[in-house]
Structures are given as C-alpha cells and as structure tokens.
Design a protein around this nucleic acid. Structure first.
Lengths: 210, 210
DNA sequence: TAGATTGTTAATCGATTAACAATC
DNA sequence: TAGATTGTTAATCGATTAACAATC
C-alpha cells in the first residue's frame, strides 16, 4: 500500500502531539496515548507506523525522543526547509511575521510582490519585486512557495512559480489551481472552511469527523 | 448514506466553481464541466447531488443560476451568517480585514482579545475585551467563531467560546482541541500543510490527491 | 514467568467509480 | 426520433478497524 495524504497528515499530527507530550515530561508513550492525543484509534497509529517502518518495542511502547526522530526522518523534517511567500498583502505579511515556523524547521526566505510600495530589501526577510522571483528561487534552490495573491492573478502567478522550479504550493486563493504532473498543491480556503462549519452547525446535521 | 465532511467540502467547491463559470458567461453546465472545474469525476458530481436531492435536467445538464441556488440552500448559505474572531493578533487582524467574506454571505461581527492595547470599540468591526465574549455571543445569537490565539491558551479559550454557545470553531492553533459532542472543530494548521508539501516534494514520493 | 503491547493479517466498512436504464 | 446526459444501482476499490500471534 502507498501512503495517501491523509496518512502523511496523521504522521505530522503524531509528531506535534509527541512534542507536546515531551514538554509535559513524557519519556515513552503507547499507541493508546498517541491515538488519544491525535484523535484516532490506536490501531490506526500502529498501522501508520508500520507502513513507514517506524517501530517501537513490544510491550514497552515507544521512546518519545526516538519516535519524534523517526517521524522527522520520514517527513523529511530533520533538515531546515526554505520557502518563499508570493504576495505581500495582509495574509502574506501575517505569514511573513509568523514565529511558529522557525521552531518547526521551516524558514521563510523571502517574500515577493508587484507593488513597489511593499518592497523592503533590507529586512531580515526581504520583500522583493516579483520579477526577481525566478532567479531567487533558482539560486537558493527553493522548492516550496506560499501563494497569497488575489484570486484573479493566482493561476498566472502559480505558473510563474512553477516555471521557476517550485514543486509545492500552499495556495490561499479560492480557486482550483491547475498545477502539473510533478507539482503538489495544497489549498487553504477560509470561506470553504467556514461554509463547512455553517453546514454542520445548522439545525440537525450530524457531525462526522474528517 | 449520510454525507461526510469531504462530501460537503465538494459541494462548496462546486458552488465556487459555478460562480466562476457564471462570471464567464455560462448559462448551463454538465456534470462533466463541473467535475473538471472541481477536480473530481463526473460520476462523483452526480452522486453528490443525488445525496441531497439536487437535480438537473436529463439530457440538458444543469442551469447555473438554479444550481447555485440549490447548493446554497443545502449549505445554508442563502442567509448571512455572523461570526466572531477570538484573538486579535496578526492572523486575527488579517482575517478581520479580509474582504472576501462579505461576498460569500459571511459577516465578521466582532473580534475579542485580552490585551487592552488591541481594543477598538468604535470600529465597524469592533475589537472588544474577552470578558464581553459571552454576553456578545448570546445577545447576537452567534454560533461560529474563529480561534486565533496562542497555542497555550487555545484549549481554555475554546472552552470559553463553547460555554458562550459557539457550536462551530475554526481553529488556527496547532493542537487537537477537545470540543464536545455538539461542537464542530475545523483545523487550519499552516505548519502541517507545509510539512505535507515537504514530504511530497522530497525525492521520489509519488503524488496522490487529497 | 505472566501480562501487556506491538506489528501484521484478515475482516469490515465506506467511499468512489462504472455502468446503464430512464428520459428529455 | 436518435442521441446524449442524468440519476441510481451494482461493482470496485481503498482505508480503517478488529483480532491475534509474536515477544519483550
């Protein structure tokens, strides 16, 4: 069996849960604890691990530190990954300033915009002209980009990113981006999430997870 | 069969796609077109519709306007829904100012924070003290809230929201919120999304959608 | 050792797809 | 009418869960 996105998402969730458990002083955990913390069944936890050769000790569960490390290995998170933000509007800038990334081995290298008023070449994380995107991405061997531009230009800018060599896009525009064979697009669509809440909150709809 | 979250998400996606098709001048569509626009199979489109009694015309496809209306009805989006934002940090404020909501029948009524420096009672969308959350939510009969506070206080603030009567939470904190029987929690976890991209972009992993 | 928990296989469950009769 | 597309049923596919042998 090949892992699907849902499974990889769970691996990340386990890792996050483990970090919190570690902060609470846990030295080892069982599939039971982890399932609880991640909101899935213990069988699911063990199954996911077995797909990736992540192992523990029969009868003795998993060593927290060791497990975090194994999961980081699978997820490619034991190195630092650089990314760019395209679009320095409200969302782009909020992400630019977001401190949470640094902890997780993710580094925002630079942002890009077309509006000269946004440019800020000297900052720690510079905001550069969009024309420089291509050369910057290539020179710094960046593979991941966050797309936070208005809907109308999203597809066009996405193509620019892809032509520059970006292979993974986190898309904030509420459209179905046409990527390409070897490009992964994950979407964050706020309105859709809220619409979804409205549906499940409205009278009488039974809640079903994920 | 009862619809699951994935199905409801698709209904929203169809509706968004329809609005774009409408803007392009389409008067009617076929399950084929819609599937393309939403990135799913035509059979899936028809199946989803049939679950909710959304119908078209044999041989003549679907009238765009009519379909948007039917979907809006199912999704409870033909009225305006108010929501509150809890936490007026970077993300909270970015959402506060986000214009996209107004189009979609979603209205941000107010935001809340504990920091007096953030208060702004006079603005169109006021930023109020957290202590007023409960009475505000009850007086305005609000059911949906966006949670954008730091991780450490997220669970506690969520419980406050729930006790005030909030039934649906869009959670930006990277933790598994313990909600409750009749509370729906949707999570947006930026780091997790990026981690996911890293995995699929890293050498040799085959891409599988959703 | 006895008891408990893993890792894995088999069983179940649910969602997607294919196919086709109905029909405009 | 003939052709095309819906709506729905049956078949397939995949993911989750249950169960249990292995074993620390």
């Amino acid at each position: 069996m090949v892992a699907n996105r849902a499974c990889i998402v769970r691996l990340s969730t386990y890792k996050n849960a483990l970090k919190r458990l570690k902060a609470l002083g846990f030295k080892k955990v069982f599939s039971d604890n982890l399932g609880d913390a991640a909101g899935v069944s213990p069988a699911q936890v063990r199954k996911d691990f077995s797909l990736f050769g992540v192992t523990g000790n029969k009868r003795a569960g998993y060593q927290v530190d060791d497990l975090i490390d194994q999961l980081g290995e699978v997820l490619g998170k034991n190195e630092i990954h650089k990314l760019v933000i395209v679009g320095a509007g409200r969302i782009g800038v909020a992400l630019l300033r977001y401190k949470g990334f640094t902890v997780g081995g993710i580094e925002v290298a630079a942002a890009f915009d077309i509006d000269p008023a946004k440019f800020d070449q000297k900052s720690d994380i510079p905001i550069l002209p969009l024309e420089e995107l291509c050369s910057y991405v290539q020179e710094n061997n960046i593979k991941i980009g966050i797309l936070a531009v208005p809907d109308m230009s999203a597809q066009q800018v996405a193509e620019l990113m892809i032509s520059a060599g970006i292979k993974g896009i986190l898309n904030f525009a509420p459209i179905q981006l046409r990527g390409g064979e070897d490009v992964v697009v994950n979407n964050i669509n706020l309105e859709l999430e809220i619409e979804n809440l409205i549906y499940f909150v409205s009278a009488g709809h039974k809640v079903k997870k994920i």
